[in-house]
Design a protein around this nucleic acid. Sequence first.
DNA 1: ATTATCTATAGATCTATAGATAATGC
DNA 2: ATTATCTATAGATCTATAGATAATGC
Lengths: 215, 215
Amino acid sequence: MSERPPSRGERRKLRTRAALIEAAQEIYAQRGDLEVSIQQITEAADVGFGSFYNHFSSKAELLDAAIAEALEAHAAWLDGLLADVDDPAVVFATSMRLTGRLIRTRPRMARVLMSGKGALLSASYGHAAHARRDIEAAIAAGRFVTEDVGVALACTAGCLIATMHLCDVDPQASVDDIADQSVLNVLRMFGMEEAEARRIVALPLPVDEPPITSI
Amino acid sequence: MSERPPSRGERRKLRTRAALIEAAQEIYAQRGDLEVSIQQITEAADVGFGSFYNHFSSKAELLDAAIAEALEAHAAWLDGLLADVDDPAVVFATSMRLTGRLIRTRPRMARVLMSGKGALLSASYGHAAHARRDIEAAIAAGRFVTEDVGVALACTAGCLIATMHLCDVDPQASVDDIADQSVLNVLRMFGMEEAEARRIVALPLPVDEPPITSI
DNA sequence: ATTATCTATAGATCTATAGATAATGC
DNA sequence: ATTATCTATAGATCTATAGATAATGC
């Protein structure tokens, strides 16, 4: 686990890789796919064409890396912001409120998470595992009721993505209200009583330092 | 509105078009995109390469048509099955139960709907408009409670897609149970009381004649 | 001296069209 | 005679690599 600080050369390599990933995320966020030539990607990244193959052996591999990077960065960001919150129901709801706001605060991240091959849907990656723990803790604490955690988690992710999509399509949308409304729906889905759900959705949010995407 | 029955030649043309659309749906369902050559598509459709351009001017256009066709066919199928059900809450819930089962009953249709560029999410196309009417009718009848129909509709679609995705990923999944569990969650989200929600989710389903996809 | 990046290019696609063939309509 | 389908191909990409250049490490 002890890692040597990266040398200048390693940093340069990481920078090139990060530039490629960032370009891929940007294109993917804008167009919903990566159906552009590798040359266009390297140009967007301001990197020599051949360098692409030093890091990835295909567009699909780059896309996977770009999505994984986004998932990790997002999960780490949420963890940092909510490290000192004890109530699992609040951690769960606040994570969802913050993620729902991404379309306003960090559109590229939002769009990568939204369409990332069902990334937010797959329970094993990124934040989904944390959300599952929060749900289970909230059930143990008697705050949530549900019969099947897997289905409940899927529904949560689905509500979140669909709500983000709703905001993304309509530039007039009041993102924060819609996000909170969606969280309220989900808390209701978990059998939480109305007053408590509303209290949680109205809590002040932690200060929003955007996540560090790349080097 | 009065339409002449298609001549033999028109039927032949429609058949070619349908073969292309069906091949596109199959490939899209299998791979999640249409990133294969037009030649591979025409081969899968058993159609001469050049014929492609008699019907579509690009892969993207074919994909749009393939998704639209799936949406329409699905909406028409549900309409047919549920034409004589009066209770909007039951129409709503049963549509969702049937759609959730698609991954078992018609996997190709299911996968096209699931990943169709957020097709199920866009309120204006296909079945979404019907679902909105059902929700509004259920609210008017005092059976559903929600503050924002748009958000509620998005959450519904999100739960549905995410649940289908869950079943699709896990071949062991008991699709019917998961679908019904998801619908139960959504009914709870709409403030329906537990007993009534469970009753609706346990109703017998209409006889399941698969929708007619193509000619 | 080593390692990564960059430039240039060969070879392999892939698209779109033009012209030939087959099916239908009268 | 008309219209759709099919076959063949020119021209335009696009990928992957080889060799040259630049940056780092010692």
